[in-house]
Amino acid sequence: MRIRDPAAADETGWRRLWAGYLAFYGEDLAEAVTAATWRRILNPASPVFARLAEVDGTLVGMTVNVLHEGTWTTAPICYLEDLFVAPEARGAGIGRALIADLVAMGKARRWSRLYWHTKSENVQARRLYERFVAADDFCRYRLVL
């Protein structure tokens, strides 16, 4: 397995993973949103970036992340917004490797922290996440505008 930055040629493979991720969460995004997300991922000036896990030339996992500033630190903060591993590739440590990749990247680039969230009933993901850190006691509030 290799974890790497995406290239323009990865769009089809990324879209397959993205579609699986959206289906898992029961989301139906407009094509314009998916296309804009891919453009942001490829734009080096964008705070949105992705990492791809590849096995034998096939994309099997991805993260989509947002690097941003904060008010409690002067160092950048990374929000791991989306993580997905293709169903046929699960159980091989790909999710763990994708998170470990971001941890290593964050240490090397001196980010102040890496954070993410998931639904409380996503037990499988929570088992993986808690290998890195315990969940905190914050509640998320989301107001759609």
Results as ranks from 00 to 15, higher is better:
residue 25 Y to M: 07
residue 91 G to N: 06
residue 23 A to C: 00
residue 61 G to F: 08
residue 52 L to V: 13
residue 111 W to T: 01
residue 20 G to H: 06
residue 103 V to E: 15
residue 1 M to T: 11
residue 33 V to N: 11
residue 96 R to C: 02
residue 74 T to V: 02
residue 58 T to M: 01
residue 140 R to K: 11
residue 84 F to D: 09
residue 63 T to K: 04
residue 5 D to M: 06
residue 86 A to D: 15
residue 20 G to F: 05
residue 57 G to P: 08
residue 109 R to D: 11
residue 43 N to H: 14
residue 61 G to M: 04
residue 55 V to W: 06
residue 119 K to Y: 05
residue 7 A to F: 10
residue 65 N to E: 01
residue 145 L to M: 14
residue 138 F to Y: 13
residue 108 A to K: 14
residue 119 K to R: 14
residue 107 K to R: 15
residue 73 T to M: 00
residue 139 C to W: 04
residue 15 R to E: 14
residue 2 R to V: 13
residue 72 W to I: 01
residue 135 A to E: 13
residue 63 T to Q: 06
residue 121 E to Q: 08
residue 134 A to L: 10
residue 13 G to R: 02
residue 93 G to N: 08
residue 70 G to Y: 03
residue 79 Y to W: 12
residue 89 A to Q: 05
residue 86 A to Y: 08
residue 25 Y to F: 15
residue 105 M to A: 09
residue 39 R to P: 07
residue 112 S to F: 10
residue 68 H to Y: 02
residue 84 F to P: 03
residue 49 F to T: 06
residue 109 R to Q: 15
residue 64 V to F: 07
residue 54 E to R: 10
residue 98 L to A: 03
residue 6 P to L: 06
residue 27 E to N: 12
residue 91 G to L: 09
residue 34 T to A: 15
residue 3 I to H: 07
residue 3 I to P: 08
residue 21 Y to E: 12
residue 83 L to P: 04
residue 44 P to Q: 11
residue 59 L to S: 01
residue 82 D to F: 09
residue 79 Y to I: 01
residue 76 P to S: 00
residue 127 R to Q: 11
residue 29 L to K: 14
residue 3 I to F: 05
residue 89 A to E: 12
residue 141 Y to H: 10
residue 59 L to D: 04
residue 133 V to R: 14
residue 32 A to Q: 12
residue 14 W to D: 02
residue 100 A to E: 15
residue 126 R to K: 03
residue 123 V to P: 00
residue 5 D to G: 03
residue 35 A to P: 05
residue 110 R to D: 10
residue 50 A to W: 05
residue 9 A to H: 00
residue 100 A to L: 04
residue 105 M to E: 13
residue 18 W to F: 14
residue 18 W to Y: 14
residue 128 L to Y: 04
residue 44 P to E: 10
residue 48 V to D: 01
residue 12 T to M: 05
residue 99 I to M: 09
residue 135 A to W: 09
residue 142 R to W: 03
residue 103 V to D: 06
residue 72 W to P: 01
residue 108 A to P: 08
residue 142 R to V: 12
residue 21 Y to Q: 12
residue 11 E to G: 00
residue 128 L to P: 07
residue 16 R to T: 15
residue 89 A to R: 12
residue 119 K to M: 11
residue 131 R to N: 10
residue 88 E to M: 11
residue 75 A to T: 00
residue 70 G to R: 12
residue 21 Y to W: 13
residue 2 R to K: 13
residue 12 T to G: 09
residue 125 A to D: 06
residue 1 M to V: 03
